[in-house]
Amino acid sequence: MHERLSFYVKRESALHQLNPLTKLTLVFGLILPAFLVPFYWTPHLLLLLVVFPLAFLGKVQGEYFTAVTKLILPAAGFLFVMQALFIPGGETVLAKLWFLTLTQESLMYAFANAVRIFVMVSSFTLFMLTTHPSELMSDLTQRGLPGQFAYVIIATLQIIPQMQAKASTIIAAQRSRGLDTESSFARRVQALVPLVGPLVFGSLVEVEERAIAIEARGFTSRRPKTSLREIYDRPLDKGLRWLLILIMLASLVSRIWFS
């Protein structure tokens, strides 16, 4: 059974205490400069001087660096190799492999891009590790986000592990009926219909019943909703958000100014 349905790790830390919207702003306050500021080493410095320390500030360094080695580094690495090899242009040829040419310019370009992606995925990871999805949604709903919209986001986040569990049951059931899903590629493709069919139909039934279930709990009621969770928005949060907005604006301006 899936006990953990979110990435959230419950800890007491300065990052955990921030208002969800502040943290969401922080995510974009990191991404925008990393992509926009024309100074070459911006993403690298952000990663080393801001993102990594934030992981320790949030006391989620263990989880974060696991994600880095398992997910972020391989993805960024792949991107780096592809871009370095396939982006045309550049004059300083470093190596030639068959029809591929590796130039210093493409190498530098790929390196910066890979780190940008690294910063982007890292900020989101830290955000998810330190923010409970319900808290985010309660906060956004109180700020005027429609309830239905918030529901769709949360339900989608939760449905992924559900779908995985369901898919593996279906696979088990069909293999038990002699369906060969293991041998050749052609067989695997043939096996898709008996696997996808029940998944889709099952989901349709589920959606109908779930709609009844949330309706029975007054989901579409027009009364003003209340929230079980208390969400704090301290002056520090407001200050930080303004600061981050300034940073984002500044990076935008720097982009326009220097290009």
Partner: peptide
């Protein structure tokens, strides 16, 4: 032996029919 092979000897009826019907 794979599950698909063992299916010759052991038939297994799962709890929820909706997780297998597709035709």
């Amino acid at each position: 032996y794979s599950v698909a092979k063992l299916a010759r000897r052991v038939g297994y009826v799962f709890q929820n029919p909706d997780e297998q019907l597709f035709t």
